[in-house]
């Protein structure tokens, strides 16, 4: 009561007086943060593009080579394969969390005892230190002594080589990423579910709809925009995934799990091949931007259809 009265009174005073007051200016609040952001984003960008046009090993002198770094990348087999590895990893590390995260959101949206505690446990993976988690999975993946092969044996499935074989390494690494980031999707979809009105369900129940029908006909269309947002952010993050791959397989065996980011890291900080690495950064960023735009476009399309 009291606050409402205060608010009304405040508004009543503000309305006539507001016209006389000068429009408040807020640019000084933003400028310091903006300057720092520009310094740590724009400066590296300009520098990166400049370096990508040079042949430069750290410590030596930079030599202008024009677009040669880019031309060489186009025929660099190792780099082209790393693009394929990145897409493969990203597909698994986006689709599975979207399905599991949506499922988890529907479950955690219901009321049940200990919901708060169980939900907190469920979000722990996305808050835990990725390097530490990657280390635990490294021990679990061990082909002879690892606990995962033992668990597989319990349910009658033969042992896997996990991250030690070329054909299983990328799905295995993606599995860790799924474990880490499913809660993130859950949180975003949960936010969507909170905004869903209850009326459609009430009338659907009266019409004798099953739970399954209600999910696909009512819930899913309403939270789809949230799932798409989660999908966009997840795609960006999965393309840039680094820790899990670097710690567990370091791009191996051979280069079987070397993603763009891993290739970039080895070029820049193992070979100090700064010119080439900078060209990789520019191409990598272009790939991320294009994919994000495609997904944003898909989101607009999804909106028009509903």
């Amino acid at each position: 009561m009291n606050t409402t009265a205060q608010q009304t009174a405040g508004a009543a005073i503000a309305a006539p007086a507001g016209a006389k007051l000068a429009k408040p200016r807020y640019h000084w609040f933003v400028i310091p943060g903006l300057l720092v952001t520009l310094a740590i984003i724009i400066f590296p960008w300009v520098f990166t593009v400049w370096m990508s046009l040079h042949e430069w090993k750290l410590g030596g002198a930079a030599q202008w080579v024009g677009l040669r770094n880019y031309v060489e990348l186009a025929s660099n087999q190792r780099f082209l394969e790393s693009i394929w590895h990145t897409f493969y990893f990203t597909a698994v590390a986006v689709v599975l969390p979207l399905i599991l995260g949506t499922y988890a959101a529907v479950v955690f949206h219901r009321e049940f005892p200990f919901r708060g505690v169980l939900r907190t446990i469920f979000i722990m993976p996305m808050m835990a230190t990725p390097v530490a988690i990657a280390l635990v999975w490294t021990m679990m993946f061990h082909p002879q002594l690892g606990v995962l092969n033992y668990l597989l044996g319990l349910v009658g499935i033969g042992p896997s080589e996990w991250v030690f074989a070329r054909h299983t390494v990328i799905p295995s690494l993606a599995l860790v990423e799924v474990w880490l980031w499913t809660p993130f999707v859950m949180i975003i979809v949960l936010g969507g579910l909170a905004a869903v009105p209850t009326e459609p369900y009430e009338s659907a129940l009266l019409d004798g709809a099953t739970q399954w029908q209600m999910f696909w006909r009512i819930t899913f269309p309403l939270v789809l925009p949230f799932i798409v947002v989660a999908g966009i952010i997840r795609t960006i993050d999965a393309l840039k995934a680094f820790e899990v791959i670097y710690v567990i397989s370091n791009g191996g065996p051979g280069t079987a799990s070397e993603t763009i980011n891993l290739y970039l890291y080895s070029q820049a900080f193992a070979y100090y091949n700064v010119g080439n690495a900078s060209a990789v950064v520019v191409v990598f960023f272009a790939i991320i931007v294009v994919l994000s735009l495609v997904l944003l476009w898909a989101r607009e399309r999804a909106k028009w259809n509903t």
């Binding site: 984003i41 990166t48 990598f284």
Partner: peptide, 10 residues
Amino acid sequence: MTPGLSYLIP
């Protein structure tokens, strides 16, 4: 969207 590594080289 910017890869973290791209800040690192410069």
